[in-house]
Design a protein around this nucleic acid. Sequence first.
DNA 1: CTGAAAGCGCTTACAG
DNA 2: CTGAAAGCGCTTACAG
Lengths: 332, 332
Amino acid sequence: MAITIRDVAKRAGVAPSTVSRVIADNPSISEQTKIKVRNIMKEMNYFPNIYAQGLASAHSKTFGLVLPLATDAFYQNPFFPTVLRGINYEMSKHDYSILLSVGLDNDQRQRHIEKIVNGKQVEGLIFLYASKNDPLLRFAQEVQCPAVVIGSPDNSKVHYVDNDNDLIGYQATEALIKKGCERIAYVGGDMNQFFIADRHNGYRRALEANNRIYDPGLVYNDLAFLPTDGYELAQKHLDLKTLDGLVISDELVAQGIKAYLDEQENEKVKTITFSAYKQDGIGVAEDASFINLNSHIIGSRAVDILFEALDPEQASTRFIHEYVAADLHTGK
Amino acid sequence: MAITIRDVAKRAGVAPSTVSRVIADNPSISEQTKIKVRNIMKEMNYFPNIYAQGLASAHSKTFGLVLPLATDAFYQNPFFPTVLRGINYEMSKHDYSILLSVGLDNDQRQRHIEKIVNGKQVEGLIFLYASKNDPLLRFAQEVQCPAVVIGSPDNSKVHYVDNDNDLIGYQATEALIKKGCERIAYVGGDMNQFFIADRHNGYRRALEANNRIYDPGLVYNDLAFLPTDGYELAQKHLDLKTLDGLVISDELVAQGIKAYLDEQENEKVKTITFSAYKQDGIGVAEDASFINLNSHIIGSRAVDILFEALDPEQASTRFIHEYVAADLHTGK
DNA sequence: CTGAAAGCGCTTACAG
DNA sequence: CTGAAAGCGCTTACAG
């Protein structure tokens, strides 16, 4: 069959346990032995059996990545690849792998998660979404599986990483005020999504802090998260005669709205949105305003937190809620 | 520690091997025993250790999913979630899991794949892209790891599943001809991508079969795959005065082009595109023409083929190239 | 239809 | 700094 640790040991003239320690780069092994054994592993094209390692050491070196129920808007948003890049970056440093947990419905997802958690196939879970009263998250808590949520769940007894959505809603709105906007609308989406509600809250605070009146009629929430939805909203529902500023919570929606404004050659209405990764420079209009959410950092911080949570020293009554800084870009 | 097969066996008054056979639903065990043991597993909340199962049985029950180097256009296209849904559907039937192989560069990806393949963490690989001369694919072939590509690679010694891109390029073009279009352009993208070139080929064949002249000046290739690219193309480069038909290879690009046409209230130019999953009905304009690629079926077929390829009976000199049927929708 | 025993390929105290 | 031995939690011929 495949080459095992015994084969390597025999050829190197050492004990299997020594080879094992070389694999783990155990400091108690002399450099000389390490070099000898490593050479032989190369020569023989030896790779440790991951399942044997996992069984013997009780470490699977794998995290489960829990995706939301498949909706196009989720996958189409640059948030997803950006955060995935951050997760991967951090995990590959630690030589960990990612096991996907998709699932056609909540039941299927739950059974799968039960299996991989109880079956010790994963050491922890990363939730790529935060939703109200999530049964999967509750399950992770019950079985005390280390977990971290990307987003802000309605459950403080869990680790999570997010932007400070209230704050950036505030900053975005204030940036438009500073640019001279008088009548600023908020384009949200589903207020059940916490980040939509939180950014809305910041929007409202900023208005009030600047002595504007908050007008619920300027809050647009009844839309989905795709560019076409933004386009339609701008075309049919936004009162572009009186408005001169838009805080747009969703990046794709913003694309649609901007496409409409561009085509109307409307330069009066200033917009600001939140972008998973955008930077000034190539491909970004000079006067574009946006807030860079640094979503890749959210991904990598989530992984770091999960590693911390793995540490048995950690009291399970201590939870990390971390806010990743976002950068305001106000254009020229 | 955790509950093991021995604990269950003891409580049930049977041997561990019997419990193991119950887990596997081995037909040689009596229904009576199965019921008894299953009840006890439930009671004790027993879950088999996946790594122990994998080590003992030499089956990891996991496939690796190889993603392309992170580009937004890939993730933003509905193709990705659609094919993932199909893959998941089929794999969950077989109780298999998906291990993700991302990676910031080719080197990292290659090392990771070597590790999970040689380390027996995966039984096979699904490539979610087809690129020229792919070193990762070559590696899979060298180590004889069962693999299936979604797309059409430049390598026939591998299993793959795809749409018949030449054929659907032909059908799409012919559909526009039947609608009375006289001057039809092809909007492609990167001709290094095989599906772009193949659909182009079908476009050309259809023109010629219908006694039109093929004009290379009507082939637009210099664009990326996002809606904004389509919008810009329509606005700046397409000669909408003389054109009356557009075969658009990429669904997102088509969105951008259509947005522009709508806004210009241009009803002369008819378009047709290829969509990962779209059906007639809700949210689809009555007169929209498109070809439904059935990408979810591609995903599920890919998984089926991989299971076939696992079968040791299979000669490794036999490769399946399967084309999934796409449906032409020509609108009312 | 069921059980006892060997084995999958590692890791890890323990001893030296 | 290194080795011998036990053990991780399963599966699977083999025997009955």
